[in-house]
Design a protein around this nucleic acid. Structure first.
Lengths: 301, 301
DNA sequence: GGGCGAGAAGATAACGTTGTCAAGAAGCCA
DNA sequence: TGGCTTCTTGACAACGTTATCTTCTCGCCC
């Protein structure tokens, strides 16, 4: 900036005024400054600028996802990015892999950089540690799962209702032995989906059979193993409810390798790429991550 | 920081020393300062810190992807994130949707924030605008496609060789009328894959039939339409080479809706989720985005 | 006991920028 | 011509931090 001012033969403040489009600079000087900026390829340091500005925003937000490479997460990410871009805001993204410690670390890093807001798909259940942050003016929005012990906005799907609908779909087709495959029950959505499953069965007057409920499954391989175990039961299930996208994939793989994909019904929660062209086609209760991300971003801003 | 110093009854520099783990602070004062930090929930402002530090790094990198929600891009992203996390570096990610202007805008924003390095899946072909940036010390790595008119590292797949292999696979199965579906030829990888296609055909002594070459396809819908048009030809192809993941998906959909998925062969470039469980299974020439991202990050750092 | 060195602590300036304010020029009206 | 307003411009301090340098306190040795 000093170099620009020297080359244009003006004071620092005049350069600052031109850079920020402030009024009160004569056209002559403005042209000189712009020329000098061009020539020196000058770019204002956004960090220094925000440091000085009163109550300055960094034009930056942080995003804590389960895994940036997960289709659900990355669709969320994209929607949020678009919303941020429209406001000239940049997005820090990070994966926490359902690890509460990593969630805190990431948010801590965001805080160090003084992000204006944070959108979280939370891994932990206690967010009291964010109280000061929130009071200090950092916007905070939770997605997919609610905040724990903190008064903050959150955007979520109707996991319970969707789950009931999925299981009732299977019941309507005459299934009575329906297995449940789920993620870690410490994840609130997984828990809600399990509740939907049991509620639908209760309504149908079917007692719960804990042998048919497999939880804590974290990837397609675990789901496939669980399905193999279910198939090996003396009285195997006639239908599967895979309550998460990766588990749906694992479930399908297991059924195919057993050659049972047409004998055992399957319904999933979360959409799955190519679900339409697998044979037989897979039914899913789809969420709309794009819409969730957009709503979350609008709330944040 | 001033509050912490006051509460601990020490000078600013002592707080700074404690925060940075510098030696030369008596255990008594160190304990006092740490207690004050705890009590006030103080966190150093990383931006201000890096501003003052000589040649300070912001511990931040920028990542320009085609689309954060695209599976290839997001797998890259994740690998880069992991590498960055190990170095306590945060990642700004952005999508440019193959728009060169957006690429420049994003990189400009990164520059304003003084990122230490930038990893780009480039949309443009001329990167001379990055010359000053590079000379100023910003690390620069290109992924998937080379830099244009700039001396910088890049990490890419063997598009030409992979493409030749894919087409030769079809030739070996006796196919002679093989259609090519490709993305915009302004994308260098799309161009290389087309070259691989024509080279394999030449080697087999088969003349190129421009009717069978469909390019500029940007999404599954466009690919499906192109396949429908191909099928409507007087002499339709007996095999398809879909040279990008989204086009593979569109191609499969079109074949299925025409009921020809067992009559017309298909091979794709890029992996596709669930490619293994579609019936008949899809062959693909898979890239390894995870490895590419890791290598790119290692190069950058 | 005095001089000296080592170590601890803080005062001050500086990083790149913008808010505040004062100075100067120019125009206007009586 | 003189006083007033308006506009342009730059000097200076400040944002939150760290580098440099000085001051001070010990303890040691001759």
């Amino acid at each position: 900036m000093l170099d620009v001012a020297a080359l244009a033969g003006v004071g620092l403040k005049t350069v600052s005024r031109v850079v920020n489009g402030e009024p009160g600079v004569s056209p002559t000087l403005e042209a000189k400054v712009k020329h000098a900026i061009e020539q020196l390829n000058y770019r204002r340091d956004a960090n220094a600028s925000m440091l000085r500005r009163l109550g300055g925003k960094t034009q930056t937000i942080g995003l804590v996802l389960e895994d940036v490479a997960n289709p659900f997460s990355s669709a969320l990410h994209r929607a949020i990015e678009d919303s941020a871009r429209a406001r000239n805001v940049l997005v820090f993204a990070g994966s926490c892999d359902e690890d509460p410690r990593r969630e805190r670390e990431l948010i801590g890093s965001f805080r160090d950089r003084r992000v204006d807001g944070i959108i979280v798909v939370p891994a932990s259940h206690d967010h009291t540690y964010l109280y000061d942050e929130q009071r200090a003016g950092t916007a905070l929005v939770f997605v997919d799962r609610p905040a724990g012990h903190l008064d903050a906005d959150s955007v979520a799907s109707n996991n319970l209702g969707g789950s009931v609908a999925a299981v009732e779909h299977l019941l309507a087709h005459g299934h009575r032995r329906i297995a449940f495959l789920g993620d870690l029950l410490s994840i609130s959505t997984a828990e809600e989906r399990l509740q939907g499953y049991t509620r639908a069965l209760e309504r149908a007057g079917i007692g719960r059979d804990s042998e048919l409920m497999r939880t804590g499954l974290r990837d397609p391989e675990a789901a496939a193993q669980a399905v193999n175990a279910l198939l090996a039961l003396p009285e195997p299930p006639t239908a599967l409810y895979t309550s998460q996208n990766l588990l749906t994939i694992g479930g399908i793989r297991a059924l195919r390798s057993a050659g049972l994909e047409r004998r055992i019904a399957l319904i999933g929660f979360d959409d799955v790429a190519l679900a339409d062209i697998v044979e037989p086609a897979i039914s899913v209760v789809a969420q709309d991550p794009q819409a969730m991300g957009q709503v979350a971003a609008e709330l944040l801003f």
